[in-house]
């Protein structure tokens, strides 16, 4: 039981460097060992099937298309030049228009989602506690259902002989030969319907944290409701607002199914352009270049998103 001091120092020196981790003493090197067999398979998987292919796309975007659609590995920036309007005969607006149109559609969708999402976010935040979960679930259910089905649901609703189109025609809001689908209105409606949950969830998280006392104070000081909303409420919910806009803008500008089914041939967005190049046109390098641009847009948005939501808990997906 007794031990000379020298003996005890020996014991101390023999002890390997380790730290207790969640109740378990681990040598300092063991972290890496544990991490490698727990995370290793998934990390390898994601590198092989996600990062690798994406890098391959980037590489491909600098290659050339052969005469028969085969890939010629010769470095060129021609694909990007073409996307930004440099055609064989000087400036060609068709391709840059696709890019601009995609960004515009994304932006417009984000704004429309914001307008539709704000009342819902406030409405859910005002519900009694036990109803909030149910209401949020109701918001996310459509998101997890099949996009194709929802899209062709809109086809049915907005069909030229459907109730809505006929109603609008009788009210003279739509020309007699005018159509909701295929065309812009249908694409926008479906996009808003599709990405609304992405707007409502982050908005709700912000609205939920709002301090109602501030707003009352503003009213006390004589601010009109609109002014109180603009100068008191809006700055407080800005993080959720920006997060929501980014989350809507990113996927909306890269959508492929909705413009394909509802937009008709003339309303090609980035996604359709990519599909076109990989499908019918068989110009993989050019398709890759478009995909890379879509990736860059996403990266910029993501960067903005992390800047805004830094320090807060991530806006959880449904």
């Amino acid at each position: 039981m007794t031990s000379a001091p020298t003996e005890s120092t020996k014991v101390k020196n023999r002890r390997p460097r380790q730290a207790v981790h969640f109740g378990e003493p681990l040598p300092l090197g063991a972290h890496l060992c544990r991490a490698s067999w727990l995370c290793g398979p998934s990390v390898t998987w994601m590198m092989l099937f996600l990062v690798g292919p994406l890098l391959f796309v980037v590489a491909m975007s600098f290659a050339q298309r052969g005469d028969d659609g085969e890939i010629v590995w010769r470095f060129t920036t021609e694909n990007y030049a073409r996307l930004f309007g440099q055609g064989a005969l000087g400036f060609d607006p068709v391709q840059p228009l696709i890019l601009a149109r995609s960004l515009g559609v994304g932006l417009l969708t984000a704004i429309l989602c914001l307008l539709a999402g704000l009342p819902v976010a406030f409405f859910i935040a005002g519900l009694p506690h036990r109803w909030k979960g149910a209401a949020l679930t109701l918001v996310v259910i459509p998101f997890w259902t099949n996009l194709l089905v929802r899209t062709y649901g809109w086809q049915l609703i907005l069909a030229p002989d459907g109730w809505i189109a006929r109603g609008l025609r009788t009210a003279n809001w739509l020309a007699a030969d005018g159509e909701l689908y295929p065309g812009w209105p249908a694409v926008l409606i479906a996009l808003v319907c599709d990405y609304l949950p992405f707007m409502i969830l982050p908005l709700y998280t912000s609205v939920e944290k709002l301090d109602p006392a501030l707003e009352e104070a503003a009213a006390d000081l004589g601010a009109s409701p609109l002014r109180a909303f603009w100068s008191v409420v809006l700055p407080q919910i800005r993080p959720g607002l920006i997060a929501g806009c980014v989350l809507v803008f990113l996927p909306a500008s890269g959508q492929f199914v909705i413009p394909d089914l509802l937009g008709g041939a003339k309303l090609a967005l980035l996604g359709n352009a990519v599909q076109q190049q990989f499908g019918a046109s068989r110009d993989w390098p050019y398709g890759s270049a478009i995909a890379v641009v879509a990736l860059l847009v996403m990266g910029a948005g993501l960067w903005l998103h992390t800047r805004v939501t830094r320090g807060r808990r991530e806006v959880a997906l449904p």
Binding site: G254, M298, G301, L302
Partner: peptide
């Protein structure tokens, strides 16, 4: 976050 189509063509 990535548009489905980009992931799809990459794969």
């Amino acid at each position: 976050f990535i548009p489905d189509i980009v992931l799809a063509v990459a794969l």
